[in-house]
Computed example of a mutant assay.
Amino acid sequence: MRIAVEDLEVSLSGRTVVSGVHLVAEEGEIAGLVGPNGSGKSTVLRTVYRYLRPHAGRVLVGGTDITSLTAAESARRVAALPQERGSDFELSVRAVVAMGRTPYKRAFAGEDRADAEIVAAALAGVGLAGAEKRRFSALSGGERQRVLLARALAQDPQVLVLDEPTNHLDVLHQVELLALLRAQRRTTLLSLHDLNAAASLCDRLHVLHEGALVASGPPREVLTPELLADVFGVRAAVVDHPLTGDPLIAFDHRTPGRRQPIDLISSPSAVSPLSSQKNVPPSP
């Protein structure tokens, strides 16, 4: 199912935090939002899973304005893993994951065999088979993250919206999570701080800066040394990963980069002029 964000504008406490944002995730595509802290990534995602209502523009899921759907209809199409993690659920791991089946149940309806199989598969998918009886509130941050992802998977959505899904995860579980998302090929829109993870996982990247979209396209075209310097303020070289062939960003941790005024892209499919330069490190 295709996601399209059209001319999105969101204001919070009277201040515009996102303006004029166009972006897409095609059916079966993994699209990533990247950008510095405060660039508007979470705000955009919150409009897609209906936590925020845009002041202008719209979010289309499968061609339908998300705000026109009922809560249950929306939940059957879109499942979210927000940054705000529940930490005080006095429930078992299994009970938390089973909450993902709620959009499919009538009031007071019990769990059936299909629900049980879906919940078990979701737990196995995030590496928590056998942890069903543990208390959610007693888990580590990384374990809670995986339980909440399992809950989203148990929702059996057509679209996944994930806000920093690798937070709190150790290296092994980060790699396993990215492999799981890649294998599913479910339409996915997610934000990531780890640019190398984004370059490896995503089919398409959208770069946000100060609430505006400044570049959009395949990771290899978008993540150039010039853009990394101008948007993130770092010096870096972009090379081929020796194991996977994906773009690999080698950061200069000794010398800050530079930031220049950013040119906004002019159409949803365009790539900023910043991302069309040669892959050579900028001078300090």
Rank of each mutant, 00 (worst) to 15 (best):
1 M>P: 03
1 M>D: 00
8 L>V: 01
10 V>E: 02
10 V>K: 04
12 L>A: 06
14 G>I: 09
16 T>R: 10
20 G>H: 07
20 G>C: 06
24 V>P: 03
26 E>K: 15
31 A>E: 09
33 L>N: 06
33 L>F: 09
35 G>T: 11
36 P>M: 09
44 V>Q: 00
46 R>P: 01
46 R>Q: 01
50 R>P: 03
50 R>L: 04
53 R>G: 06
56 A>I: 04
61 V>D: 02
61 V>H: 02
62 G>H: 05
62 G>E: 03
62 G>P: 00
71 A>V: 01
74 S>Y: 08
77 R>W: 03
80 A>I: 01
82 P>V: 05
84 E>Y: 07
86 G>W: 05
89 F>L: 06
90 E>S: 12
92 S>A: 03
92 S>P: 05
98 A>C: 02
98 A>M: 03
103 P>R: 02
104 Y>I: 02
107 A>K: 14
107 A>D: 10
108 F>V: 14
109 A>N: 07
115 D>Q: 05
117 E>A: 15
121 A>N: 03
124 A>H: 03
129 A>N: 04
134 R>P: 00
139 L>P: 05
141 G>L: 01
146 R>K: 04
147 V>D: 07
149 L>P: 02
151 R>Y: 06
154 A>H: 04
155 Q>Y: 07
156 D>I: 09
160 L>Y: 09
168 H>V: 11
168 H>G: 10
170 D>Q: 09
171 V>S: 13
173 H>R: 14
173 H>N: 15
174 Q>R: 15
176 E>D: 15
177 L>D: 12
178 L>C: 11
178 L>E: 13
187 T>E: 11
188 T>H: 14
189 L>H: 08
191 S>H: 12
192 L>I: 12
195 L>P: 08
196 N>K: 04
200 S>I: 08
202 C>E: 07
211 G>P: 02
211 G>V: 10
211 G>K: 04
211 G>T: 08
213 L>S: 14
217 G>V: 12
218 P>Y: 13
227 L>S: 13
228 L>R: 09
230 D>Y: 13
230 D>Q: 13
232 F>P: 08
234 V>L: 15
234 V>Q: 10
235 R>V: 13
240 D>V: 10
241 H>S: 06
243 L>Y: 13
244 T>N: 06
246 D>H: 15
251 F>A: 06
251 F>N: 00
252 D>I: 01
253 H>Q: 06
254 R>K: 03
254 R>H: 14
254 R>P: 00
255 T>C: 01
260 Q>A: 14
261 P>G: 02
261 P>C: 00
262 I>D: 01
264 L>R: 12
266 S>N: 08
266 S>E: 14
268 P>V: 10
270 A>S: 15
274 L>H: 14
277 Q>S: 14
282 P>W: 06
283 S>C: 13
